[in-house]
Design a binder for these strands. Structure first.
Length: 282
DNA sequence: CACCATGTTCCTTG
DNA sequence: CCAAGGAACATGGT
C-alpha cells in the first residue's frame, strides 16, 4: 500500500492528532511485527509515555516519544505492503488483522496489517542503511549521476534500491520512468545526461504530485469503505474528486495515455514493471 | 488450483 | 568481499 507519498500524507494526518497524547496501555496481537523488540520491552517503554512528534523518513514513520522521567526515544513504524495506522474510538472493535493497538484513553491507535509484513519496533538500525530523501537536498543531480555511474543493473531496479534513494516503491518507480520517457530496462550506467536529468526531475515531480493528490481529498484511513481500491487513498464515503493519477502502473494492455500503444508488463528482480514500449524505448 | 499483490530481508550463487 | 537473483514472510483477491 504505502510508498513515500502515502506515508507522508499519513504522517501529516496523524502528527497533530497524536501530539501530547499519553499511552495508557498496549495490546500486541502479532509479536512478529515488533522484531527484534520483545513485547515486554515495548510495553515497558511505551506505557506512560507521550507522543511528542512524528516525522517520516523514507517509508518509515518515526514516532518521537517521551517517558515520564523526561527521556525521549524513537518508535519506528513501517506499513509493509498492506499496513494501515489510524485512530478509532475506544469502544470500537479492533480490526481482524490488528497487529498492535495503543490505548490512548478515549481512543485507540491501531496498527492493522493484513499480511503482517510491517514493523512497529524500537530497533532503529535500518535508518543507517537508507539513501537520501528524494525530495531533499541530499538527492542532488550530481549524487544521482554518481550513484548510477558504475552499475550495469536495470534503472528500474536501481530506483527500488533504498540505499540509493529512499522512498520509491514499485508504483512510483514505474510512474517516474514513464514521465521521464526512460526505458525501465536500460542499464543504469547507460543513461545519457539528458535521460538522467529527466528522470531526476520526474522522480521528484511524481512524488510531489502524489503527495499533493493524497492531501487533496478526505481519505478512508481504516480502509473499510467501499471506495477503498488499489491504493491507500481510498476516498472517504461520499467524497468526490479526481481519479488516481497513475499512468502505467497495473495498466498492462491498456493504451498509453500519450501514444495509445498498449502498456507492457515485464518482470524485473521479481517485481512487475509497467511501461510504454514506444514512449520508453532503449 | 493457479497466479498476482504498494516491501524488506535472508540465503545462495557466481 | 560484492552483485544479482530467488525465496521467504502471510493473507487475500481474481
Amino acid at each position: 500500500m504505502p510508498e513515500l507519498p502515502e506515508v507522508e500524507v499519513l504522517v501529516r494526518h496523524l502528527a497533530p492528532r497524536l501530539k501530547n497524547k499519553m499511552i495508557r496501555g498496549i495490546h500486541v496481537r502479532r509479536a512478529r511485527v515488533l522484531r527484534p523488540t520483545r513485547p515486554a520491552a515495548l510495553r515497558r517503554m511505551l506505557t506512560g509515555s507521550r507522543f511528542v512528534n512524528l516525522v517520516r523518513r523514507a517509508k518509515y514513520l518515526c514516532f518521537m516519544l517521551q517517558r515520564a522521567d523526561g527521556g525521549t526515544f524513537l518508535l519506528i513504524g513501517h506499513l509493509g505492503m498492506t499496513g494501515r495506522m489510524f485512530l478509532q474510538p475506544a469502544d470500537a472493535p479492533l480490526p481482524k488483522h490488528t497487529a498492535v493497538a495503543l490505548d490512548l484513553g478515549g481512543e485507540n491507535f491501531v496498527f492493522e496489517d493484513t499480511r503482517y509484513f510491517g514493523r512497529f519496533t524500537l530497533d532503529t538500525s535500518m535508518q543507517g542503511r537508507l539513501g537520501p530523501e528524494p525530495l531533499g537536498d541530499g538527492f542532488s543531480f550530481e549524487y544521482f549521476t554518481h550513484a548510477l555511474k558504475r552499475s550495469a543493473q536495470a534503472i528500474k531496479v536501481k530506483l527500488l534500491d533504498q540505499s540509493l534513494v529512499a522512498g520509491l516503491g514499485n508504483i512510483y518507480a514505474c510512474e517516474s520512468l514513464f514521465h521521464a520517457r526512460v526505458s525501465p530496462r536500460l542499464a543504469a550506467c547507460k543513461l545519457t545526461r539528458a535521460q538522467r536529468e529527466r528522470l531526476w526531475s520526474a522522480v521528484r515531480r511524481t512524488l510531489a504530485d502524489a503527495i499533493r493528490f493524497g492531501s487533496s481529498m478526505p481519505l478512508d484511513w481504516p480502509g473499510t469503505g467501499e471506495l477503498d481500491g488499489l491504493f491507500y487513498y481510498g476516498r472517504a464515503a461520499g467524497a468526490t474528486g479526481p481519479q488516481e493519477p497513475l499512468r502505467v502502473y497495473d495498466r498492462q494492455g491498456q493504451p498509453c495515455p500519450v501514444c495509445q500503444t498498449p502498456i507492457r508488463r515485464i518482470v524485473q528482480a521479481g517485481r512487475s514493471t509497467f511501461y510504454c514500449p514506444r514512449c520508453q524505448q532503449i
